[in-house]
Structures are given as C-alpha cells and as structure tokens.
Nucleic acid binder design. Structure first.
Length: 473
DNA sequence: TTTTGAGTTGTTCGA
DNA sequence: GTCGAACAACTCAAA
C-alpha cells in the first residue's frame, strides 16, 4: 500500500541542502509534492527586483529538484485556499514548511495550520532560515535582547550550531499533474517593457550553486581583509555578496557559518554580519510592526518634510552629492548597493532631506534583490535613530567626506555617475567646489548635465539636529 | 534594588 | 595634518 503523500511548501527557502523541512518530508517515507505558491510576501507585494531574482531562483530550484527526481509544482493564488484544496485532491497526509518570522506570514501560517489540523492532517513547521530561533537567546531577566553586542556574545557562548544537513541524493517526488499548475515563465516575474534588469545578469547568479560559488570565492582570500575591505565602495569583492542568496534561502546561515569557520582563520567580523541578520529577526519577531512603526515611540513626534521632489531626486540619483547618487544608481542598475553607501544614502534621505525613513524602506524593498523584511526594517530604523541599539541622532554622515574616505580615487563615482568620469579626484566628491576651468575641462555643467546639490550640507545638518531636539521637547 | 559600564559603521572643532 | 573631546541623554544588561 502506498503511503499518502506529503507536501513540502517552499517559500523563502529555495534550496535542497540543509533544509530540515524537506529532509523531514523525505524521511517520512511518503512521496513528496514540492510546491511553490506565487503570493505576496511579508504582507505586501514583492519588490520588482525581488521578482527578477525569484524567477531565476525558482528555475535553479526546479533543476536541482529534477536531478533528485522531483518536480516543482507552481501555483498562483491564496495559500489559505490552495493548500487545503490540494491536500484534498491528492489525499495528502502531511504538510511541511520552513518557519517564517514576520507578523503577516506568522498569521497566515497559523491560520493554515489550524485549518489543516482540523482536517486531521499532520502539519510541521521547521526551522532552517536562521541560526537560532528568535525566542531562543534570552537575557538574564528573561527578555529578548535589544542591544546587538551582548546578544551576539550570548549566541556565541551558547555555541552548538549543529552541522548542516546534506542535500538529498534522491527524492520520491509526487510528480503527477496538479490542477492549475503553471510553468515558471507564466508567472510573469521578469520585466519586459521596459526591461530594467539588463544590468542584473552580470553581477548575479541566483540559485544555490551560485550562492556556494560566491561563498567559496569570498572565503578564498577576501574574508581575510573583510574588516577594512568591506568599506571600500568600489571593491565588490570586499563584501561577501551573499545577501540576496540568504534572503531567498538558497544557502542557509548554518551552511555559511560552518563553511566559513572551516575554511578561514579570520571569520569573526564577517560572521558578526550574519549575527546582525539574526538580531534583525529577533527584533522583527518581537516587534511585528518593525517595518512600519518607530521602535522608539519618542520618534513619533518627529516632523518630517516629506518633499516629493526631493524624494524623487534621491531615488533617481540626482541629489548633486556624487557618492549618494552613485549608490542610488548602482541600486537601480544592479538591484544592490554597497553596504557603506547604503548607510550614507539612507542617512542623507532621513537627515539631509528630512524624509521619513519609511519612504526609504519602501524604495529599498522595491529595488533591492536582497530585500528582507527583517534586515531592511531594522537597518532603516538604525540609521534613523528610532531603532533598537540605534545610531545616536547626532551622527549625521557627511556625504562628501564619506566619499573621500571610502572611494578615495573616485572609482565608484566614475562607474555609476559617468557624467563625472573626467573630474579630477580632488573634486569628484564635491564638484561644487571645483574652479570653473576644472569643470569645463571635465565637461561638467552643474545644474546642466549634473545637478547642483539639492540641499546645502551644513545648513541641512543643523536643521536635522534642530528637528531632533524639537521632537524631544 | 541599585549601580555600573557600555552601546556597528561619525562629524566638527579647536589645540 | 593629527588628535582628543564634545556632541546628549537614554536604555540596556549584568553584577
């Protein structure tokens, strides 16, 4: 007698290795129906850049599953309706998935779980997307941590990160025809008119294989100098480049953790970045509104300007501050921005333009291939000063000295702001200071082919400090 | 309960 | 050019 099938519902865990839910489904001995449902994520539509990534990631997963003998079934619609109906159609006995931690997904998963349980189905949610569950590490007074350093120390002290699970050699896949199932191409995830993703193909190889290659190449040298090199804007190899792979679960943090420690002597600084990802999930899990409400309610009094013209100039990389503009254009062209530049660009939006951090969070959500509900929300709040363990409010990045420090040759600016390509490095981060003849020789016309600064740094800084002060009175 | 030390990534000013 | 202090005050975590 054949066992009733099990459903493995893939979400942001698009891999076959180190996948506790998939392993459990296989180990149950049942034929496994591998399912992906096209649906909103974290309570809102996916960003455009994320959709591009998702398309390629699904292709990669489909091929990895095929090699194991399993078909990837793709549906579109409301999982709350679809899953119980599939369970009934194929007479499934169990459903497995990897746990999610953002408020809306938790609610949805709970509802589905309860419906299925009422129908007598085995439902199992598994860990796998984090090193530790967000409720696991507690302070001495039994609360969750709100400061990163003691949190991460406690994690390291707790130790015991189990070995990654090997990829399955074969899967007894449920490979019949599922009503309503679609080929990946029919999901329409790729941009067509216009195709803005032309610049994505070069830098990225979505999928597990690409993720592991990237990690291997990073560990083969660059991790040694991560501490300083990660800050050099033009040096793409100075960072791991794993963020989108982690965001889609093509590689697990546990795999990153072990591979890093096994292949490098110097890993503390890099792994602490994995720690920030974990910490962001702790904050999100305990504060489901992290992406939409100030973590510190004192910030609710802050008076934003929210000038739409300035917001648009920021989005398009037309602020007149070359380092900021380079970052925003790199984001638009490749779906990614260097971490150092993210901080400067975010600080500029919030503190120089006095635009609510949520507008920045939304733009990044739409344009980043690594858009993640926890990291994105926690990081924007960190820059704004409204978050947990946040940057103090008087810390306002200087958009041109940051450029001079972390792009000293102007290489990064030249690459992403080509109209400044002929500027000598002395003035490339502050063209408004350049003498007229220098501008003429470089072919730069301020207010013509490159904008004048939309705000003046010193005045903007003082205004921001004043607003913060006023918001506290 | 109270105390103590500390807290991702910076800037500016003046000596 | 380099260096240290001020920028503010608060909250967190542990002793």
């Amino acid at each position: 007698m054949t066992q009733s099938p099990a459903i493995l519902w893939f979400r942001r865990d698009l891999r076959v290795a180190d996948h506790p839910a998939l392993t459990a489904a296989i180990d149950s001995g049942a034929p496994v129906l591998c399912l992906y449902i096209d649906h909103e994520f974290a309570g809102r539509p996916r960003g455009g850049a994320s959709e591009w990534w998702l398309h390629h990631s699904l292709k990669s997963l489909e091929s990895d599953l095929e090699k194991c003998g399993a078909k990837l079934h793709i549906l579109r619609g409301n999982p709350e309706v679809l899953i119980p109906s599939i369970v009934q159609d194929i007479k499934a006995g169990a459903v497995h998935w990897s746990r999610r931690y953002d408020g809306d997904s938790i609610e949805l998963d709970k509802a589905i779980k309860s419906t299925l349980k009422d129908d007598g189905i085995d439902v199992h949610s598994h860990p796998g997307s984090l090193l530790r569950e967000p409720w696991e590490i507690k302070t001495g007074s039994d609360t969750y941590y709100k400061v990163f350093t003691p949190y991460w120390k406690a994690c390291l002290k707790a130790g015991g990160i189990e070995d990654a699970l090997p990829a399955p050699k074969s899967i007894d896949g449920w490979n019949g025809n599922l009503k309503g199932s679609l080929p990946i191409d029919d999901l329409g995830l790729l941009p067509t008119d216009p195709d803005w993703a032309g610049g994505f193909d070069g830098p990225w190889t979505p999928g597990s294989a690409g993720a592991h290659e990237r990690l291997a190449s990073f560990l083969d040298g660059h991790v040694q100098h991560y501490d300083e090199q990660r800050n050099v804007a033009a040096n793409e190899d100075g960072t791991s480049g794993l963020s989108p792979h982690l965001a889609f679960g093509e590689i697990s943090p546990r795999e990153v953790w072990h591979e890093t420690r096994n292949n490098s002597e110097v890993y503390d600084v890099y792994l602490s970045e994995i720690g920030w990802r974990e910490f962001s999930y702790v904050l999100l899990y305990h504060n489901p509104k992290l992406g939409s409400e100030n973590f510190k309610p004192a910030f609710d009094n802050f008076k934003w300007d929210n000038n739409k013209t300035k917001l648009r100039a920021w989005q398009r990389g037309q602020t007149g501050y070359p380092f900021v503009d380079a970052g925003m254009r790199q984001l638009w062209a490749t779906g990614w921005m260097h971490n150092r530049v993210r901080m400067v660009a975010a600080s500029f939006l919030i503190k120089h333009l006095l635009i609510d951090w949520r507008r920045g969070e939304e733009w990044f959500w739409d344009t980043l291939v690594d858009a993640d509900p926890a990291s994105n929300a926690a990081s924007w709040q960190w820059v704004a000063g409204s978050g947990a363990d946040a940057s103090p409010y008087f810390r306002i990045f200087n958009p041109f000295t940051q450029g001079e420090k972390f792009d000293p040759e102007g290489e990064y600016v030249k690459r992403w702001v080509p109209e400044l390509a002929k500027m000598p490095k002395k003035y490339i981060h502050r063209p408004w200071d350049a003498p007229t003849d220098v501008l003429v020789r470089a072919g730069v016309k301020l207010g013509g082919n490159y904008p004048k600064p939309i705000v003046e740094h010193k005045a903007a800084r003082e205004e921001a400090l004043g607003r913060y002060k006023a918001s506290r009175e």
